[in-house]
Simulated assay, not measured.
Amino acid sequence: MIWDTADAQFEENLAAARAYYAEADTLAAPRHATMLDKPVGQWLTNLRRPGGLGKDPERAARRAEQLAAIDPDWNPGALGWTIDWQRHHVGLRALLEAGGTLEEILPGVTWRGDDIGRWLTRQQRDWAGLNTEQQRRLSELGVKPAVRPQKASAGTSAKAGAAKGSEAFTRGVAALQQYIAREARTVVPRGHTERLEDGTVVRLGVWLSNIKNRRDRLSEQQLAALAQLGLEWAA
């Protein structure tokens, strides 16, 4: 028996929100996003509006707690930034956790359709316009405000970036080898993560998607290593 249709509908949409978070690691969904045949993006947009959680204070508080239990940052406006900023920040974190480096995340590098590289460049350039919490969250990921490039240190920076990129690639290949040995296939779900023997966690699906998009930037040795694992696009 359904005692309250409004609460029943909220619970259905909440289930869709949980499923979306499990896939995207955030409730900062674009307005057009859907999940479980529910318009979860528009639903969350409506909830964030004044009075969107309902007129009853107790009900509104209960609903806010349910959403926060899924994603504490479900309403970024209350923190001082936009849904778009929150989603891109989560994307940047996902790329780094997948083994990428800040030096590799250039304009054109995407996550779930968002250009994270271009966004990252803008954050570094406009650092002074970010609030303290935004700066803190970016700093935790290693992001620093943009500085004028110095010719004297350009070679050193390039070598350091190349070294970090090589380490990330090596971890990704090791994770892929482990996955193929266990699953006997090269198709990796985008949300899949792989834990290496040393405890390192690689977001293998994201890493594989990104290096495929950046195929033209891989060395012949890197392409050969991927081709040996059975990736036809690397041959």
Results as ranks from 00 to 15, higher is better:
residue 1 M to V: 15
residue 4 D to F: 01
residue 8 A to C: 07
residue 12 E to K: 13
residue 13 N to V: 04
residue 14 L to R: 12
residue 17 A to V: 06
residue 17 A to W: 02
residue 18 R to A: 04
residue 18 R to S: 02
residue 19 A to C: 11
residue 20 Y to W: 11
residue 23 E to V: 11
residue 25 D to S: 14
residue 26 T to Y: 01
residue 30 P to E: 10
residue 33 A to H: 11
residue 35 M to P: 03
residue 37 D to N: 15
residue 39 P to R: 10
residue 40 V to T: 09
residue 42 Q to K: 15
residue 44 L to I: 14
residue 44 L to S: 05
residue 49 R to K: 13
residue 51 G to Q: 05
residue 53 L to Y: 14
residue 58 E to Q: 13
residue 59 R to S: 06
residue 62 R to T: 13
residue 63 R to V: 08
residue 64 A to W: 01
residue 66 Q to D: 10
residue 67 L to Y: 02
residue 68 A to Y: 03
residue 69 A to G: 04
residue 70 I to A: 02
residue 77 G to M: 07
residue 77 G to V: 01
residue 78 A to Q: 14
residue 81 W to M: 06
residue 85 W to P: 04
residue 88 H to T: 07
residue 89 H to R: 12
residue 91 G to K: 05
residue 95 L to P: 01
residue 96 L to S: 02
residue 102 L to T: 06
residue 107 P to S: 02
residue 112 R to H: 11
residue 114 D to N: 08
residue 118 R to T: 08
residue 118 R to W: 12
residue 119 W to L: 05
residue 124 Q to G: 08
residue 130 L to M: 07
residue 132 T to N: 09
residue 133 E to W: 08
residue 135 Q to H: 09
residue 142 G to C: 08
residue 144 K to Q: 15
residue 145 P to R: 12
residue 148 R to T: 11
residue 149 P to I: 09
residue 154 A to W: 08
residue 158 A to N: 09
residue 158 A to C: 03
residue 159 K to A: 13
residue 160 A to I: 15
residue 170 T to G: 03
residue 170 T to K: 14
residue 178 Q to E: 00
residue 179 Y to C: 00
residue 179 Y to M: 00
residue 184 A to G: 00
residue 185 R to F: 00
residue 185 R to K: 15
residue 186 T to Q: 10
residue 196 L to V: 07
residue 201 V to R: 11
residue 203 R to T: 02
residue 204 L to G: 00
residue 204 L to A: 03
residue 204 L to N: 03
residue 206 V to K: 06
residue 217 R to Y: 08
residue 223 L to Q: 14
residue 228 Q to G: 15
residue 230 G to T: 06
residue 231 L to A: 07
residue 234 A to W: 08
